[in-house]
Design a protein around this nucleic acid. Structure first.
Length: 121
DNA sequence: ATGCTGACAGGAG
DNA sequence: ACTCCTGCCAGCA
């Protein structure tokens, strides 16, 4: 398993309950702002046994993962709802409301749930 | 080593 | 507002 995946897992694992993060954000935090796909792929390959809140990772568009993930978008939606996440009337996620602080835009070090996890060596 | 794929993102139609 | 096309990067056949 590549180091990148490891990073993704740790990052995702530290997402606070009731918060949302986008693939792009995670990718950017790992130094690959263009590798959002890789993050998604990591999720896909990420074993649920790791207790990874993959359901808290959504697309920038507020669009939930495809139907085949989480056993159905409806399932993920329910999980998020249980976490305290709210949805828009159209069914899309309310990113602006639950997205992890101001990830994109905030300076490194002011990372929300990381707070010491990232060692900018 | 080469090519295909993908749980994305962003711009264009 | 929605859908389609292209770009990007890391794994896997």
């Amino acid at each position: 398993m590549d180091h990148f995946f490891q990073q993704v897992y740790e990052l995702v694992a530290q997402i606070p309950r009731g918060k949302l993060a986008t693939y792009g954000q995670i990718a950017a935090l790992l130094g690959r702002p263009r590798s959002a796909k890789i993050v998604g792929w990591a999720m896909r390959s990420a074993p649920c046994e790791l207790d990874l809140p993959c359901h808290r990772v959504v697309s920038k568009s507020g669009r939930l993962a495809p139907d085949y993930a989480f056993g159905g978008a409806g399932k993920q939606r329910a999980m998020l709802a249980a976490e305290g996440i709210t949805f828009k009337v159209d069914g899309c996620l309310d990113l602006d409301k639950h997205l992890v602080r101001g990830w994109p835009g905030k300076l490194p070090g002011d990372l929300p749930f990381l707070a010491g996890e990232v060692d900018c060596s």
